[in-house]
Nucleic acid binder design. Structure first.
Length: 642
RNA sequence: GCCGGCGUAGCUCAGUGGUAGAGCAGCUGAUUCGUAAUCAGCAGGUCGGUGGUUCAAUCCCACUCGCCGGCUCCA
C-alpha cells in the first residue's frame, strides 16, 4: 500500500480501509470521507479485498468533503440516514430513490400523504438519534435474485423495480446501517455518526422517475456538512439568495410587475425597470451595429400558413397559443422571430457576395408555458429575445460562430458576468439534416470554442431537431448558473423555405442559418441581473444615479443649482427637498440603492462644494462639482460596479 | 398540467363561526435637523373570486383564479 506521502506498508487482504487510514501519517486538515484506491473511490468500511485485484501495489488517495466526490458520498450517506429515520417513524413509507444533489440531497418516499413541517422536525430529531447511534454502513453483495427477494419481502416495490432493470451480471450491493438496509451502489462514510451537521429544508411532490404518468411521491430535501459552522454558512447563503430574489427586489425597487388582472407570465415594466431595459437595449444596438448586424422589425402575428411552412405547427405546437381567425384566415401569435427574418432574406435574390447577412431584432414572442413553471422574470409567457439570424455559406459557419462568441463574451463581461458553463448539444434521435451536415456543423461549433479557448462540455443528443447548438449558462456572483445565451445551427428552415443564394458558379446554393440570442430574453436577463447585482445596479444602469439632499430648506437654491449642473452633464438626478432629517433621506436612498448621495448643508452652500456619500457607506468628503462630474463620467465609461 | 403549501390594507404579517388588527408606506400638522428610521393625528380592507352549509362565513365545504416550493420543460 502506497500512501500519499509515498511511504509504503503491507496490509493483509481483509484489512478495513478505515484501519489503513489510521496508519497514514497525515497533515490533512480534514479527515477523509473515503479513499481512492488505485483511482477507485471506496468507502472506509470496505476491505482491501473489495479493491480491483491484479496488482500487489495499492496507491491510496484521500477523498475529502471539499471535493465533489467527497460531498456526494457524504450527502448520499445523509440521505440514507434520513431514509432510515423516515422508515422508523413511518413504517408504511416505501422507499424510492435518494441521491446527493448539488448542495444537498433528497429522498423520495411513497407515503400516501404529504409530509408536514412537523413531520420534518420529527424526522430531523430521529436522524440525530441515528447519527448518535454510530451505526456502521456495511456493504453487502447480493445476487440479483436475492436482492429482489429481499426487497419484495420488505414490500419495497420501487426498489424491486430498480433491481429488475439492472443488467444480469451487475454486482448488486446493499448497505446496512443498524436495522436499516437500502439498495445502493455506495460508497458511504464509515458510520452514521460521521454525518455531523444536517438540516431538512423543504418537501415537494415529485413523480416516480420524473414522469407525470407515474405516481407522485413525497420528496424531502435536506443538506449536510461536516461541521455546524459550514452548515450555518450554507444556510446564510440561502438567506442571501432570498434577499436577492428578483421578485422581491423588483417590487421593492419598483422595477416591474406581473399582475393577475393582466395575466400570469406577462410583465409590465415600471419606469425604473423600463429605464434599465432601455439602457441595456441601447448598449445592445450599439454593439450590434458595430458588429455588422442589420436591424429589422417584424409583426407579432402572422398567418398560420407561415408557421405551417416553418414546421413550428408540427414541432412547436405545444408552446403556441391557439390561432385566431381574422376575415376567415387563421393567424397565430409568434413564438419565434425566425420566419420573419427568413421572409426578409427571401424578398430578393441573394448573391454569395451578400453573405453573411445578419438580421437582428429585439423581437417579442409569446410561448405557452404550463402554469406551474412560471417564475418571476425568469420564466414568462411573453418575452423579448435579443434575437438574430445569420445567413451564411457553409464555409463561413466557423468564422460567424467566432464572431458571435466574441460579441457574447464582451456583452456578458459588460454586465459583470465573467464565468460561464458552456454546452455543445449534439444530434438527437429525431433530427432533420444529413449526418454529414451535423458532423460538419458540430465540429465548426467545437472548433470555434477551441479557438477561443473556451472550455465546454458535450451534451450528447440534446441538440434541437434542426441542428446542433452551443448553450451558455452564466454564473452569477453566488455561483448559480443561468441559461441565457444560445447559438443554434439550423439545416431545417433554409430547406423548408427553399432559401438560396447564387454562388460563384452561377448556380443556386442553400445558405446555412444560425439562430442566436446572447442575453436570451431581456426579461430573464434582467431578472438575473437584478439578483447578480442584488438590486445595486452599477452607475451606468442605475435608474437614479445621484440623489441630492439639502439638509434644510436654506439649501434648496444651491441644491437646484447642483441638480441642474449634473442633469446638464447627462446624469439621472433626483432631489429630496422634503423637510425631513438627513438620516431619513439617506436611509431611503440607501434602500433605493442610489449609487451616490450628495448632501448639501450650510457648509457646502458656503464653499460651493458637495459632500458625497456612496451607497456602500463610504464618505468621499467634500468635492468640487467638476471633480464629482469627472468621477461619475469615469465610472459610467467603465461600466463597472461601484 | 401534476403534488403540496399559501391568498387578510400599497408592503410585511397577526387574528376570529357573531361581520377585522399591528408595523411600514400614504395623507395632514408640528419639528429646519449633518451621513441608515423626529413626533402626533387621520385615512385605508365586499379578508382572491363564485357557489354551498349555517340564524350568522373572512373563518367550515366545493369549485375557480393566482402566488410559492417542487416535478417536467426551456429564452
Amino acid at each position: 500500500m502506497r500512501f500519499p506521502d509515498r511511504t509504503e506498508r503491507r496490509f493483509s487482504n481483509d484489512t478495513l480501509l478505515s484501519d489503513v487510514l489510521a496508519q497514514a501519517k497525515s497533515s490533512w486538515k480534514e479527515s477523509p470521507v473515503a479513499l481512492k484506491v488505485n483511482g477507485t473511490v471506496m468507502g472506509l468500511g470496505q476491505r482491501l479485498s473489495d479493491a480491483t485485484a491484479g496488482t500487489d501495489l495499492f496507491v491510496i488517495d484521500p477523498v475529502f468533503f471539499s471535493s465533489p466526490e467527497g460531498q456526494e458520498i457524504y450527502r448520499h450517506s445523509s440521505a440514507h440516514i434520513m431514509a432510515q429515520a423516515v422508515k422508523e417513524l413511518f413504517p408504511n413509507a416505501k422507499l424510492a430513490i435518494g441521491p446527493p444533489i448539488e448542495d444537498g440531497f433528497y429522498y423520495d418516499f411513497d407515503l400516501g400523504r404529504p409530509f408536514t413541517p412537523e413531520d420534518l422536525d420529527k424526522v430531523e430529531r430521529q436522524m440525530k438519534e441515528i447519527a448518535a447511534a454510530h451505526y456502521v454502513f456495511e456493504r453487502k453483495v447480493l445476487s440479483k435474485q436475492d436482492a429482489i427477494r429481499f426487497f419484495e419481502e420488505k414490500g419495497e416495490t420501487y426498489k424491486v423495480e430498480l433491481i429488475r432493470e439492472l443488467p444480469e451480471n451487475e454486482t448488486i450491493t446493499v448497505y446496512e446501517q443498524g436495522p436499516f438496509t437500502d439498495l445502493c451502489r455506495g460508497p458511504h462514510v464509515l458510520s452514521t455518526q460521521h454525518v455531523l451537521a444536517f438540516k431538512l429544508l423543504t418537501t415537494a411532490g415529485a413523480y416516480w422517475r420524473g414522469d407525470e404518468r407515474n405516481p407522485m411521491l413525497q420528496r424531502i430535501y435536506g443538506t449536510s456538512f461536516p461541521s455546524q459552522e459550514a452548515l450555518d454558512q450554507h444556510l446564510k447563503r440561502l438567506e442571501e439568495i432570498k434577499r436577492r430574489d428578483h421578485r422581491r427586489l423588483g417590487r421593492d425597487l419598483d422595477l416591474y410587475n406581473v399582475m393577475d388582472e393582466i395575466g400570469p407570465g406577462l410583465v409590465i415594466w415600471h419606469p425604473k425597470g423600463a429605464l434599465i431595459r432601455k439602457l441595456i437595449e441601447d448598449f445592445w444596438r450599439e454593439q450590434h451595429q458595430r458588429h455588422g448586424y442589420d436591424f429589422v422589425y417584424s409583426p407579432h402575428i402572422a398567418r398560420l400558413d407561415l408557421w405551417r411552412q416553418s414546421g413550428h405547427l408540427d414541432f412547436y405546437r405545444e408552446n403556441m397559443y391557439a390561432p385566431m381567425s381574422i376575415e376567415g384566415i387563421e393567424y397565430e401569435l409568434k413564438p419565434m422571430n425566425c420566419p420573419f427574418h427568413i421572409m426578409i432574406y427571401k424578398s430578393r435574390l441573394r448573391s454569395y457576395r451578400d453573405l453573411p447577412i445578419r438580421y437582428a431584432e429585439l423581437g417579442t414572442v409569446y410561448r405557452y408555458e404550463r402554469s406551474g413553471v412560471l417564475h418571476g422574470l425568469l420564466r414568462v409567457r411573453g418575452f423579448t429575445q435579443d434575437d438574430a439570424h445569420l445567413f451564411c455559406r457553409p464555409d463561413q459557419i466557423e468564422q460567424e460562430i467566432l464572431k458571435v462568441l466574441d460579441l457574447t463574451v464582451f456583452t456578458l463581461k459588460t454586465f459583470g458576468f465573467n464565468e460561464y458553463e458552456i454546452y455543445v448539444s449534439t444530434r438527437p434521435e429525431k433530427a432533420v439534416g444529413s449526418p454529414e451536415n451535423w458532423e460538419r456543423a458540430t465540429s465548426a461549433l467545437e472548433s470555434a470554442l477551441k479557438t477561443k479557448g473556451m472550455a465546454y462540455r458535450i451534451d450528447p443528443g440534446e441538440g434541437v431537431f434542426y441542428g446542433p447548438k452551443i448553450d451558455l449558462k452564466i454564473k452569477d456572483v453566488l455561483g448559480r448558473a443561468w441559461q441565457c445565451t444560445t447559438v443554434q445551427v439550423d439545416f431545417n428552415l433554409p430547406q423548408r423555405f427553399k432559401l438560396s443564394y447564387i454562388g460563384e458558379d452561377g448556380k443556386e446554393h442553400q445558405p446555412i442559418m444560425i439562430h442566436r440570442a446572447l442575453m436570451g430574453s431581456i426579461e430573464r436577463f434582467f431578472g438575473v441581473l437584478i439578483e447578480h447585482y442584488a438590486g445595486a445596479f452599477p452607475l451606468w444602469l442605475a435608474p437614479v444615479q445621484v440623489k441630492i439632499m439639502p439638509i434644510t430648506d436654506q439649501q434648496h437654491g444651491y441644491a437646484d443649482d447642483v441638480a441642474r449642473t449634473l442633469i446638464e452633464a447627462g446624469f439621472r438626478v433626483e432631489t429630496d427637498p422634503r423637510n425631513e432629517k438627513i438620516g431619513l433621506k439617506i436611509r431611503e436612498a440607501e434602500m433605493a440603492k442610489v449609487p451616490y448621495m450628495v448632501i448639501l448643508g450650510a457648509r457646502e452652500a458656503q464653499s460651493r462644494k458637495l459632500s458625497v456619500r456612496k451607497r456602500s457607506g463610504d464618505n468621499l468628503g467634500e468635492l468640487d462639482i467638476t471633480a464629482f462630474v469627472d468621477r461619475l463620467n469615469g465610472e459610467v465609461g467603465q461600466r463597472v460596479s461601484s
